[in-house]
Write a protein that binds this DNA or RNA. Structure first.
Lengths: 213, 213
DNA sequence: GGATGTGAAAGTCTTCACAGCG
DNA sequence: CGCTGTGAAGACTTTCACATCC
């Protein structure tokens, strides 16, 4: 099983490698990738080990080949439908962001409690009332959801999502969610991050300069 | 130096303890706090060690006392001005979110390249053009900034912020930022989190059910 | 010579387990 | 007894360092 941190960085390498290709680079050394990703070269080489893609001491890694291996690793090609819950400012920001990105991930349905949003199409994505949750998750084969509703509404939605068989959740609500053991949960708590930044801004840095990623 | 993960959880305990007080609880056991935070009781006790607040085997920890120690730890009381860069959907979401929250952190200035936003007040926060960056950061004594601009604009702003003496940055732009060694950087990369969730949703979970936080 | 690939070491973070107290 | 406080162990993660190859 590949380590979570490594998986995160691999998604970053995908972006950087696409940049490199666009710049016309055919090969890249671990040092160059490391410079762009703001990590060490050793880290890059360790991460790339899971791909099994060869690199030559002379030329480095072939960008195209790495991207192919990464496509396999992430099972790109098959697009993954995502559901969004909460179409406030944050929800709209996410819709427009993923609209732009060409990616295997696509937000195919948005849900909001506000009846005024029912049926509207925002950034190309249709809004549904919450009672359509189960039917749409099932029909569209959705296994990943984004929670962008107020904290008070989050757990109820998550409970329904779990019954509907969801497998991964990205949570923006500032509240700890309870999920079953087979569900992957990623919390993006803005208040927590800001407080942390403020704390280390006033006290000194935590040893090494790294964070999150 | 307190560990980053511990600092994150301590901010969470602040919220949970306020909930508990609001519910009329005077004392709380590590197990109850752990249940609400979705961590283990041992983790809670280990985290609380940095506060030096006593807990009694009989009653647990006194909520009021813990909050007082946490206030000291985070240097609450003194409010910390924060600058926001980028007033798109995401920026507006952040403004309305921090407007609501009663917190020591307050977004006191927003910056956007769009001249139409110049001078407007959004969710109680005034928008400025980017060329006011240095003067306002200095005048308001801002040491923490939020980057919510497109990836292409992020590094330039960060470079100027570092010259202006910024100490902490929360970055939403999907690009690795280069910061000096004395600057704390927290990356909240939505695309990365979603890709990670999708990956672990299709393969199985990474050993333990935890993530982020 | 300089880069890759990788055991082994060094950190960092979480959990265990148990002494000690109320 | 069950809970707190904490050394020690265990689990991740990153870095070191070096054999190996072009």
């Amino acid at each position: 099983m590949t380590a979570p941190r490594t998986v995160s960085r691999l998604t970053l390498y995908v972006r950087l490698l696409n940049d490199l290709l666009a710049e016309g680079a055919e090969f890249v050394h671990s040092h160059e990738l490391a410079r762009r990703a703001r990590v060490t070269a050793a880290q890059v080489r360790r991460d790339l080990m899971v791909l099994g893609a060869p690199g030559s001491p002379k030329r480095g890694y072939k960008c195209r080949r790495l991207l192919d291996e990464l496509s396999l690793f992430f099972n790109h090609e098959t697009s993954k439908p995502v559901a969004l819950f909460g179409v406030g400012d944050l929800g709209r920001a996410l819709l427009s962001y993923f609209k732009m990105r060409h990616s295997d991930l696509e937000i195919v349905a948005a849900f909001d409690i506000d009846p005024l949003k029912n049926g509207r199409v925002i950034h190309g994505c249709r809004c549904y009332p919450l009672d359509k949750l189960e039917s749409i998750v099932q029909e569209r084969g959705i296994s990943v959801a984004i929670i962008a509703v107020p904290a008070s509404a989050a757990q109820l939605i998550v409970d329904r999502l779990m019954l509907a068989g969801i497998k991964g959740i990205v949570n923006f609500a500032p509240t700890p969610l309870h999920v079953g053991p087979a569900v992957f949960l990623e919390n993006l708590d803005v208040a927590m991050s800001l407080e942390k930044a403020a704390y280390f801004a006033s006290k000194g840095m935590p040893k090494k300069k790294d964070t999150s990623l």
